[in-house]
Amino acid sequence: MRRVVFTIVIVAVVLFSIGPFMWILNTSLKSPQTIAERPPTIIPDLQTEFFAAAVDEHNFMRYVGNSAIVAGLTTLLAVLVGTLAAYPLARLRMPWRRGILSLVLAASMFPQIAIVGGVYRLLLKLGLLNTHPGLVLPYTALTLPLAIWILTSFFKEIPSDLEDSARVDGCGPLATMWRIFVPVAAPAVFTTAILVFIYAWNEFFFALLIMTDPAVQTLPVGIAKFPGEYMVPWGELAAAAVIATIPLVVLVLVLQRRIISGLTAGAVKG
């Protein structure tokens, strides 16, 4: 009896979590005839016309490419700069250590709306509106707090005898970081990279305002501004939504454990 109830609960949890995605996936696999049926049919006829239309007519792969470039570059930059900063913040004696850490953390809590005006005007001045770096730079700033938070808490856990033996061997702080910490921290660096990538892949607010030229827009903007003022082309839109989501579903399925440990790293260690 208990077992039956628990199984029902599990099924409910899974349906709650993936149900809406299944419905949009279902919709994307219908043909233009079945999608217009009322009441809506539950079983799709497994057509790929909408995917073909999203890719060919709406040139949707362009958005995928832009998202891949922006999210990829953001990940590289945030992880690199974040690792450099996290090492001294965790291991070296320096004045202002706590101050810098709290300032960086506070930065992650600011609302995007309070930042976007200044960022927009700065990018305008630098001629970086509607360019990939114009999005990568603010994304790096917005994800650095997360990267520094996870990496600092990880670096703190590494036993100091590793560090001491490197010192005895005559390594300076830079060499110690590079030879000892970076290899040991590889899993944490990887976790950070996944979270930053997902953030940059999904971000909408800055992308909407900085990328007004469709040629450089990322996936979320492409989907939000999907053509169709009066009639929403639901089939193509559903296919586009599925294309934007599949990489994330794969990431989550493969790296579930890492993502959970990364997200809770800050919370557990307080």
């Binding site: 949890v13 809406p20 997902i198 892949w201 996936l219 979320p220 994330l248 579903v249 993502i259 959970i260």
Partner: peptide
């Protein structure tokens, strides 16, 4: 359970 968290908010809105 992680899927809703990972899905872009824009896609969640469309869904």
């Amino acid at each position: 359970v992680l899927i809703p968290w990972a899905i872009p908010t824009v896609v969640a809105g469309v869904m």
